[in-house]
């Protein structure tokens, strides 16, 4: 007698597809298509597939539908009493009956200094409300199982369900340069990082990736260097610091750039996700006089 096969698990978010498993075209947890082959690069990056147009994700009694492929819309159908929270500029449309209120955030002054939104809004069901970001890319659904947490780079958060707790912390990724008498502090991935945790029950987090998104799992102690502004999210177990590489030069240098490459060094264990379109990371060059856990390599 053979034991029944275990229900299939989504390779992207780990959600079990349940008994309906094999017949489901999309993951009920993150909306990723399940009926296509995994796309893994030779270097080990797993391409996060864009949610199929009109894919539906269930979160408790509520659900969300991902619509569109260029700038996708996350369209929530909120059950009575269910709620989501979001930065105010993510709202695309809502039914007039959906009530939205402002939630207070601790450390508003510090958030303002760091350039983060100081207003977070709650929308309470029943009713429909939709969100989108004004940039081409992918809407990534990250289901959080009870007890799980994930760290997201600032300005990427779109919306989360009420069972997901929101916190933020100093990411500790910075360096200082000095030119003349002036010392300048730089934060290549921002001063603060968002942390989302599902303390008691599962929840759903939606973020926006510019361009395409890729994921890899780092083994304990394994290191990868990524462009700082390319980081999307990481498991809280993944640690990060800045690493500078100086290329070997021959002869006279014209000092037309910083003379170095700046990387974000990430150490496992845990997941790391990057986006293919990223903003410019400014390194003004000049002498580095301080920073948190900086490392350097001269080629």
């Amino acid at each position: 007698m053979t034991s029944p096969a275990a229900p299939p698990v989504c390779p992207y978010c780990g959600t079990s597809a349940g008994t309906a498993g094999a017949s489901l075209p999309t993951c009920p947890g993150c909306g990723a298509p399940l009926d296509v082959a995994l796309r893994v690069s030779a270097s080990g990056w797993l391409e996060l597939p864009a949610a199929r147009d009109m894919a539906r994700i269930q979160c408790g009694h509520s659900s969300v539908q991902i619509e569109g492929k260029i700038v996708p819309v996350a369209d929530f159908a909120l059950a009575p009493g269910d709620s989501v929270y979001f930065p105010h500029h993510e709202l695309l449309w809502k039914e007039p009956g959906v009530n939205i209120t402002q939630r207070s955030l601790a450390g508003a002054w510090k958030r303002m200094l760091a350039g983060l939104p100081v207003r977070m809004l709650d929308a309470v069901g029943p009713g429909r409300i939709a969100f989108s970001r004004d940039a081409a890319g992918e809407t990534l659904a990250i289901p959080l199982h009870a007890g799980a947490s994930v760290d997201v780079r600032e300005h990427l958060f779109m919306v989360a369900t009420k069972s997901v707790a929101y916190d933020w912390f100093n990411c500790g990724v910075w360096f200082q340069t000095r030119q003349g008498d002036e010392t300048e502090t730089h934060f290549p991935i921002g001063m603060l990082m968002d942390r989302f945790t599902a303390p008691a029950e599962p929840g759903l987090l939606l973020i926006h990736a510019h361009g395409n998104a890729f994921l890899r799992r780092l083994a304990p102690g394994e290191r990868i260097l990524v462009k700082p502004s390319g980081l999307l999210y990481k498991d809280s177990s993944v640690t990060a610091h800045l690493h500078f590489e100086r290329p070997r030069t021959s002869g006279l240098s014209l000092w037309t750039w910083g003379e170095r490459y700046m990387w974000l060094a990430l150490y496992g264990p845990g997941r790391v996700a990057v986006q293919s379109a990223y903003g410019h990371t400014h390194d003004p060059g000049g002498r580095i006089v301080g920073g948190a856990n900086l490392t350097e390599h001269q080629w």
Partner: peptide, 22 residues
């Protein structure tokens, strides 16, 4: 249209609230 474009037909008196820039 920037990004994706969506359309719906509102019945007489039916209303929807949208982000003004959309």
């Amino acid at each position: 249209g920037y990004g994706n474009v969506f359309e719906r037909t509102l019945a007489a008196g039916e209303s929807i609230q949208v982000e003004p820039g959309s």
